[in-house]
Design a protein around this nucleic acid. Sequence first.
RNA 1: GGGGCCGUAGCUCAAUUGGUUAGAGUACCGGACUGUCGAUCCGGUGGUUGGGGGUUCGAGUCCCCUCGGCCUCGCCA
Length: 591
Amino acid sequence: MLRTHNCGELNKDHIGQTVTLCGWVDTIRDFGQGQFIDLRDRYGRTQVTIGPNSPDEVKQVVGQFHRECVVQVTGIVSARPEGQQNEKIATGDIEIEAQQAVLLNSCPNPPFLPSQAELPNEDLRLKYRYLDLRRKEMQETLALRSRVTKGIRDYFEANQFVDIETPILGRSTPEGARDYLVPSRVHHGEFYALPQSPQIYKQIMMIAGYDRYVQIARCFRDEDLRADRQPEFTQLDMEMSFVDADDVMGMIDGLMKKLAHDLLGIDIELPLPRMTYHEAMTRFGHDAPDLRFGMEIVDCTDLAAQTEFRVFRGVADAGQFVRGINAVGAASLFSRKRIDELTTYVQEDFSAKGLAWFKVNDEGELASPIAKNFEAAILEEIKSRMDAKPGDLLLFIADSWDVSCKALNGLRKKMGAELELYDDQQMHFSWVVEFPMFDHDEEEDRWVAKHHPFTAPLESDLEQLETDPGQARAQAYDLVINGYEAGGGTIRIHDSGIQQQVFGLLGMDEQQARERFGFLLDALKFGAPPHGGIALGIDRVVMLFAGLDNIRDCITFPKTQRATDLMTQAPSGVDETQLDELAISVIQPED
RNA sequence: GGGGCCGUAGCUCAAUUGGUUAGAGUACCGGACUGUCGAUCCGGUGGUUGGGGGUUCGAGUCCCCUCGGCCUCGCCA
């Protein structure tokens, strides 16, 4: 070992000892007659002193020190003079009087310093990721991430789960996200797909009798990125046999309680609250509502039907919806100009036809360019239904169910953040359950699985699979943390007949189903136990536990929004010979 | 594929209506200083204003194209 201690552990108890530290030069404070050098590693910072009486060799070596050099210092731990202690750091009571110093490796002036106050632009952080990862915040986040995965492994180990690995090179499946493809050298023209999740493998493991499976699995989806989405990400993937939805949720309840307690010091009450998909959409317009604040959606369609205001009346008569939210106290914050911006926002982002609004003035009256179109009694009813008080801003969307949900959810999130309706430190865990089995794809006029095609319907809704697939609900559950979907799972179909039926609804005839999933249909016949499971996005969980607002800050080497790695410059072109072996030729786009 | 924000010194930012030699803080280099810890003080180096084209007497500023980063809709569970 080149060191006897790290840079964060020395204190008064070590005074008098001779120690050797290694680390990066964080800062040098030079006084001519002597220097103070802060040595830094991931454990902390320790002050090294060079004074007039220090050995000449030390003075000479230290003269070559620059920021971010890697150095080794041997010296005596001594108490700092009275009044010179630094309470900000753990080692602030002591310092090292250097007796020996070695420059282990030099460093040119870096593009940014890990300890600088102003965070550089993200592209620079990504290009020099090793410098960025030296920052305390990044080191703390990655340490938290490590404790999350350790906590997960301990928890499932204690609950008799078996940690099982599944293939990375698998078979492409047409459902769901776009696959990352890997060309086969042995079979020209054929491709493996990287897993979007180990879904089918874990179901096969249930059939194989491994009734409690868990894996921390890397997953890949070739879709566009977002602040909370990366093309490769990590899932806590688990599956259980002989369970119902309550059992799976209960198991995750216990995990969340443990992680929140151990890592955040928060005690959460179990079971976590649950709400149906329908309720979530009705009250919040989103299937992963942020429940740290209220501002619930209020339906005023019936009132709109009674007005002369054409926009409202027309929408109500057409069987669509007039719903709104009350941004409490926001009237003075939102000028006409800012409300216009909100209107543009809902129009451009959600194709809403417009945004109707009322400000509640000091007299308690609803003030708005459209107010004259409403009878007094209707205005009163709107006020009371929305619990409107002077100073409030009421925002209404008159549109289809789908658009009103999306637009009101968008507005609610904006308003919640703007009005600071929640504490950033607060954590809220809940479940959303009973998702629909299918969404209707308008373009292709067919049903698509809302979760995935192996999801079991509610037993009570089995009949509706035949009569009204759009109404059939699934044994599905999503874990929601602070308005983010942290994970989702389902009870699976373990009956090959029902599975065939669902494939049929998804537009796959028997032959297509056999081609794509024949192995699973076969396996389901060979004694498949009832089973179900869930996958949690570990990156998102860490992001939320760390209080971050983007997923890249808890991933060691993330991709940019255009899915590139600025450090390694991936993706890149490859040699012709590599392409030849794979029988691949690249078509250059014409333009 | 669509919408939006951004790109100026190594870094973070400023630069009036299009108008003199593009500034500040910090970093870096040199000097001073015996207790600092965001050290302080003095001095200095440092610019293809992301790139290309255009309008203009004159462009960091206006227009077009392009490259890159971020946010977002679509996409994705």
